[in-house]
Amino acid sequence: MRRLEHDTLRARSRGARLLPQITALWLLAVWFLLWGKVSPGLAASGIVVTFLVVRAFPLEPLPLDGRLSPLPALWLALHFGWDLVRASTQVSWLTIRPGAPPPSAVIAVRLRTRSDLLLTLTAECVVLVPGSLVVEIDRTETTLYIHVFGIHDTDEVERERRSVWALEARLIRAFGSPEDRALLDAAEAGDGPPAPPDAVPGPADVAPATDGAAPSEEGDAR
């Protein structure tokens, strides 16, 4: 039901109408970067090509109601660059290290945001930060299923979940809509994402005190 509201909201959103213009601007920028210079003739041909591309390949409307905050965006970019270097050195060390590579895990991380744009951005960034790779995305519940390399126990699973939430928080502070920022603030007050009323608790929320119905870590062979 939330998704239905969300879909009608998206059709009416200001950003849904702005999307072709933003795509066109980006394509025009690519055009100039490819030629490496700016001239009136290039601008005219670029506008023609851009127009044709935007008309020929229309995109699904996307609510773009984010607000850009410059300082958090700079912090995000710096942190991302550092993460990329850390991830590469970590994986390189694992490749040349003697002995078997460490075990890994597939974990579910339910994000605080409800917007498709931030879900996509988070998924893109998660692949390039240390240890993680997105294998599946549940869009209706904005949950990422992440393959994490180098996981030995459940403590590390929780630490990894927290690091994805921290990455998402940086993205929301940089590009999030007011709605996302409110969701994030509410979640950070309670430490962890709130479970929406229409969802059953995710695997992370299954308390160890429940009966034997909860799937154990090794028992569910197919």
């Binding site: 597939v106 579910a108 992370a204």
Partner: peptide, 13 residues
């Protein structure tokens, strides 16, 4: 068998 935890398979099942 290489995975310590597999929450996606749990979810699918």
């Amino acid at each position: 068998e290489l995975l310590v935890v597999d929450e996606l398979t749990e979810r699918l099942e």
